[in-house]
Simulated assay, not measured.
Amino acid sequence: MLNLKLKRTLLTVAFLTLLTTFYGFEARFAEPATDAAASELAAVEPTDPAVLPLAESYQISVYDNIIRRISGEEGNDWRLMSAIAYHESRFTPDIVSRRGAKGLMQIMPVVARQFDVPQEQLLDPETNVRLANLLLNEIASTLRLPASVPEKDRMSLILASYNGGIGHVSDARRLARSHGENPDSWEVVARYLELKADPAYYEDEVVRCGRFTGYKQTRAYVDDVMKRYDRYCQVAK
């Protein structure tokens, strides 16, 4: 029984490494059918179409109820998931990238297969949001960050894994640890992600996923989503 559990754990880690590395590749090179590939996100203001005025409060999108309910069931902040959805698709439910990522959260078909979800359901907003939550939770579980890690660092490391690949983030954390630095600090890990383009670092024996050239895109992704999440926290409860 113990060996079976160990084998399942190793298979999950291997899957996430492959999945999120590919997922990060998708994020760097996909060309969505709408303006979702815009390089800079405007700060959310009351006039921003992503935040619709609703009486005395703010509605982030028409998918608030779905994102709030499912994220609550999965233990995630719905405003963070909304920030991801805005970045990924501008809340466009039927968007499909040229590499196959689909829906509000731009979920890859391989994610649906991992969670035994039929491919034809990927464009369903509820299914799409559920899969994004499940994937984030798998990443968080695999990273095994200590409870003492500040929430901003925790979120940033998870988002970086979601975008750039958990394998590369794990490499950067191992590099940080081997150089006597904090592997749980996003700023430290981000620096080593950038250094993973240098053979002096990506050829280090602790590195398992090789060279990483997507640092700028991943850094921008984390910064953009976190800034939008902070703003959503100010206007939506």
Rank of each mutant, 00 (worst) to 15 (best):
L2W: 10
N3E: 13
L4T: 10
R8K: 15
R8N: 14
T9M: 12
L10M: 10
L11I: 07
V13G: 00
F15Q: 09
F22A: 11
F22Q: 10
G24A: 04
F25G: 04
F25A: 12
E26K: 07
R28N: 08
A30P: 01
E31Y: 07
P32S: 09
A33P: 01
T34I: 10
T34E: 06
T34G: 14
A38S: 13
E40L: 13
E40Y: 03
E40H: 05
E45H: 04
T47C: 06
D48P: 01
P49H: 09
V51K: 00
P53R: 02
P53M: 03
S57E: 14
Y58R: 05
I60Q: 02
V62M: 08
Y63H: 11
Y63F: 15
D64C: 03
R68K: 12
E74C: 04
D77T: 11
R79V: 07
R79N: 06
R79W: 06
M81Q: 12
A83I: 10
A83E: 11
A83P: 09
A85G: 05
Y86A: 13
Y86F: 13
S89C: 10
S89V: 09
R90F: 09
R99G: 08
R99N: 08
R99S: 08
A101D: 08
K102C: 05
G103K: 01
G103I: 02
M105I: 08
Q106D: 02
P109W: 00
Q114H: 14
Q114L: 01
Q114I: 00
F115E: 01
V117I: 15
P118A: 05
Q119W: 03
E120M: 03
L122Y: 01
P125I: 07
E126Y: 00
T127H: 00
T127Q: 04
V129Q: 01
L134H: 00
L134W: 06
L135T: 10
L135Q: 08
L136E: 09
L136Y: 06
N137Q: 12
N137C: 00
N137A: 05
I139C: 08
A140R: 14
L143W: 01
L143A: 09
L143C: 10
R144C: 08
L145V: 13
P146V: 11
P146Y: 02
K152M: 08
K152Q: 13
R154L: 13
I158C: 09
Y162D: 11
I166G: 02
G167V: 10
V169A: 11
S170W: 03
D171H: 02
R173Y: 03
R173G: 05
L175A: 04
H179N: 14
G180N: 07
E181I: 02
S185P: 12
V189H: 04
R191C: 02
Y192R: 00
Y192P: 01
L195C: 02
L195K: 12
D198K: 03
Y201P: 01
Y201H: 03
Y202H: 07
E203N: 14
E205Q: 14
E205S: 15
E205I: 10
V206T: 14
V206D: 05
V206E: 05
R208I: 02
T218Q: 04
R219F: 13
R219K: 15
A220S: 14
Y221L: 10
D224K: 15
M226E: 15
C233L: 15
C233K: 15
C233T: 14
K237P: 08
